[in-house]
Computed example of a mutant assay.
Amino acid sequence: MDRKSLRENLENYRTPFEDESSFVDDFIELTFDDNAYVRERLEGHFTGSAWIVNKRRTHTLLTLHRKLNKWLQLGGHADGHENLLEVAMAEAQEESGLTSLRIVDSRIFDIDRHTIPQRGDVPEHFHYDVRFLFEAEMNEPLQISEESKDLAWIQFDAVEDIVGLNPSILRMLEKTSKSEILM
Score class of each variant (00 low, 15 high):
L98G: 04
F109K: 06
A88Y: 11
S96Q: 08
P117I: 09
V87H: 11
A88L: 04
E82L: 00
I108H: 12
S106T: 14
M89W: 15
H81T: 08
V104H: 03
T99R: 12
L85M: 11
I108W: 11
L101M: 12
H114T: 11
A90D: 12
E82K: 09
I111R: 05
A92T: 04
A92L: 07
T115Y: 13
E91M: 08
S106N: 15
E82Q: 12
S100K: 08
I116D: 14
S100P: 06
L101P: 06
G97Q: 10
G80I: 04
A88I: 01
E86M: 07
A78N: 02
E82R: 06
M89G: 00
R102V: 13
G97M: 04
V87Y: 06
R102H: 13
S100M: 09
E82F: 02
G80R: 02
E94F: 11
E86F: 06
H114C: 02
E91H: 14
A88W: 08
I111N: 02
S96D: 09
I116Q: 14
D79N: 13
D79V: 00
D112T: 12
E91F: 03
E94S: 12
V104R: 12
G97K: 07
E95I: 00
T115I: 14
R113F: 11
P117Y: 10
E94P: 00
P117Q: 14
E95T: 01
G97T: 06
Q93A: 08
V104E: 14
D105E: 14
M89P: 00
A78H: 05
D110R: 10
G80S: 02
T115C: 06
A90N: 13
S106D: 15
I111L: 10
D105T: 09
D112I: 01
G97L: 04
L85I: 05
V87D: 08
D105I: 01
L85A: 06
R102Y: 05
Q93F: 02
T99C: 05
H81D: 10
E86C: 00
H81K: 13
M89D: 10
I111T: 12
I103H: 03
D79A: 09
L98C: 03
I116C: 08
I116F: 14
N83G: 04
E94W: 08
I108L: 14
G80P: 01
G80M: 06
L101K: 03
D112S: 15
D79R: 04
F109S: 03
S100C: 10
E95F: 02
I111G: 01
G80E: 03
A90R: 12
L84K: 02
I116R: 13
V87M: 01
E95L: 00
H81V: 08
P117W: 07
S106Q: 15
E82N: 05
T99P: 00
F109P: 01
D105V: 02
V104Y: 08
S96M: 05
I116A: 09
